[in-house]
Simulated assay, not measured.
Amino acid sequence: MAGVFVTSQGISQPLANSGLVLQNGGDNLSVPVGATTFKFANSISYGTAYDIKVLTQPNHMTCSVVNGSGSAGHTATIAASVICTQNTYSIGGTVSGITGDYVVTLTNGSTGGQVTLTKDTPNFTFGTPVADGQAYGVTVLSITSATVTPVKLGCSVANGTDVMGNANRANIVVTCAPN
């Protein structure tokens, strides 16, 4: 049996991470990093049922099989596909020191996304997740007030830059104070 790795957009992509094991019945296949095709060692005969599954997910990714079950026909190749995506996780943290009607907007300049903070926001989480292994960088985009001109509040960001690991992160600390 053979298949091809594709992204959800249908563009061929090499397997990025190690650890993927596919299974068809009792036939297991370890798929190497960089692979764009796969082929099980054991062939199946015409009319034989097949059911290709992901036995072990690759590191830091989630894969699924498309068109992985059916009955072998007259063709030599079964057109099963494996779609893999990098796992993503949220980033966020805590904020302190915002007073009055100040509005602080943070941005993740590396991967996109913004979050708006006020005096009533003790914790925050960006709505745009970050892929495992990707760098992120959170900074203050703006500080505004409807009643105070010029703005008399300054904010700093601690733990705002890092490379995403394999779990949600809530360790960003935003500290604001009058300036």
Rank of each mutant, 00 (worst) to 15 (best):
S110E: 15
S142V: 01
Q134N: 15
G93V: 10
G154P: 02
N159T: 06
L22V: 04
K152S: 14
G112I: 08
C176Y: 09
A170Y: 02
F5Q: 15
T107A: 11
G68A: 07
S64N: 10
S110Y: 07
T149Y: 00
N166Y: 01
T62D: 00
V104K: 03
G165A: 12
G93Q: 04
S69Y: 00
D51N: 13
T75K: 09
A72S: 01
A79T: 02
C84D: 07
I143E: 08
N59V: 06
F38S: 11
A2K: 14
T139I: 12
N87V: 03
P32T: 01
T128Q: 14
T121F: 05
V174P: 05
T85D: 13
R169D: 09
Y136S: 10
I83K: 07
S110M: 14
Y46I: 10
V54L: 02
T36V: 13
F5V: 08
S110C: 12
T144H: 05
T85Q: 11
V157A: 11
A131T: 05
T75H: 12
V6T: 14
A76E: 06
R169G: 08
A135W: 08
P14T: 09
A135Y: 13
S90L: 15
A158T: 13
G19A: 09
N87A: 04
Q9W: 10
K119F: 08
V157L: 13
T62C: 03
V95N: 15
V174A: 06
F124E: 14
I91V: 13
A49R: 05
K119D: 12
T144S: 14
S142Y: 10
M164A: 07
Q57Y: 11
T36E: 15
P122E: 13
Y136F: 15
N168W: 01
T99M: 00
V140P: 03
L106N: 08
A146F: 00
G127H: 12
G92C: 03
V95F: 05
L29S: 05
A80D: 02
G3F: 01
G133I: 13
G154D: 08
N24M: 01
K119H: 06
A167R: 09
L29W: 03
